[in-house]
Write a protein that binds this DNA or RNA. Structure first.
Lengths: 230, 230
DNA sequence: TGCGGTTTGTGATTGCACTCACAAGCCCGT
DNA sequence: ACGGGCTTGTGAGTGCAATCACAAACCGCA
């Protein structure tokens, strides 16, 4: 099991286990955790937890559980979070500003160390302690400062162009907050976070349950009518 | 096909098609679109597009493609976006403020119509044209104003409590931006957006490709040594 | 040392989603 | 009216992920 490639689905869950483990570690005294409890905390089922963790290696002890600290370290290492990945953000509008000063990133070890924009009115401004530079300085900055990850927080119309500039600068990992699809070479990894897509999905299910309720109600009324007639 | 339940994976892609179609519709003159082109725009493959759309019904014309306007309407309707879903946001901190004034929501038909917080310093403040109220007024507001969706943008420690209050107030759809898992009854739909989880996943793959490169380089050096010896 | 209770690690099974490949069906030009 | 060229819609096949279920292994205690 240990040497097989880790399934994508598992990788996507590792951060959740990591968070749950951090919570446990903070509450002092918790030395070990069972797959059952970790599952409850992370909101998945226990078998999945065990299988996921088994891809990393046999880090548990039968009859006891997993050592919190040790597991914490292993997941951190596996996710590549033992080193830090200097991150650039491009597009310092409303959303970009909020993200740049979002504490959640820093807490989880991601330092946004460079900000870029194309708008001269924004360039030179200081956001979260960092000066915004012109996008044309991107390539040079990547080379000099070892930037590894790019965050796109421009409006959708500019996303593709920015993505190309990031690729050109040598960046292989991109997080795209703009609600549009960007095309990149196959060796570049893009992940998209679309804030309103999630709302739209909620809307779908909300509508469906409402439709079901309405149908039930109609049914009930119909049945009542029939009962009345008899 | 038409009457089968729509697979979750398909529902999750409908918003992407919707966006691509909107782009096409804006560029005037585009009347029809093939699955091939829609696939390119949305960044998926054509067979998937056709299968996805076939779940909604036979809205295409063989030899021609899909009528943009008609398809647009059908997807909008299917996603429940023909009506609007008044949305409440709880937790008006850094992130909450940015989200509350994020134009992307409004552009896609989601109006955030009520803001709540627990901090007296924030209550009464106006954010994006809306007065922040105390969380205790939530239940009443939901009943009176027909709020359907709740967005949690508190720190992780407060998320569970807020979720319970939303459930208690009768809300069935929750979007959770706090990086923590919340427990709710099975008839409530929670979706989580964790901004840093995506970065962690990128980190994993970035590390892996870096490891592979390093290994290749080591190999190359080894091979060179062997060649030298001969 | 041996036993009972507990929890992991993992083969086996099931189910879901993606992909392929092609028949069915449409349009247009002749 | 009809044939050629496209494009959809969908059964069939494939692969991945989730779940089940149980043997293996560990701890503590007598």
């Amino acid at each position: 099991m240990r040497n097989r490639p880790i399934p994508e689905a598992t990788v996507a869950r590792l951060p959740m286990y990591l968070r749950s483990l951090l919570d446990l570690a903070e509450g002092r005294g918790v030395m070990t955790v069972s797959s059952e409890e970790l599952a409850r905390l992370a909101g998945v089922n226990a078998a999945k937890v065990r299988k996921d963790l088994s891809y990393l290696g046999s880090y548990g002890t039968r009859g006891v559980g997993y050592d919190v600290e040790y597991l914490l370290y292993q997941i951190t290492r596996e996710l590549g979070l033992t080193q830090d990945w200097p991150t650039a953000m491009i597009g310092i509008g409303n959303l970009g500003r909020a993200l740049a000063s979002y504490k959640g990133f820093a807490e989880r070890g991601f330092r946004i160390t460079a900000l870029f924009d194309a708008d001269d009115n924004v360039i030179g401004e200081e956001v979260g302690g960092i000066i915004v530079r012109h996008i044309d300085e991107l390539k040079e900055a990547v080379a000099e400062e070892g930037l590894c990850i790019g965050i796109i927080s421009t409006p959708p119309s500019g996303a593709q162009e920015v993505a190309e500039k990031l690729v050109d600068a040598g960046i292989k990992s991109i997080l795209n907050f703009a609600p549009s699809h960007v095309n990149v070479p196959p060796d570049v990894n893009v992940r998209r976070v679309d804030l309103s897509v999630e709302l739209q999905i909620l809307s779908f299910y909300q509508q469906r349950t409402k439709a079901i309720e309405t149908a039930r109600e109609a049914n009930r009324r119909l049945e009542n009518q029939q009962t009345d007639r008899r």
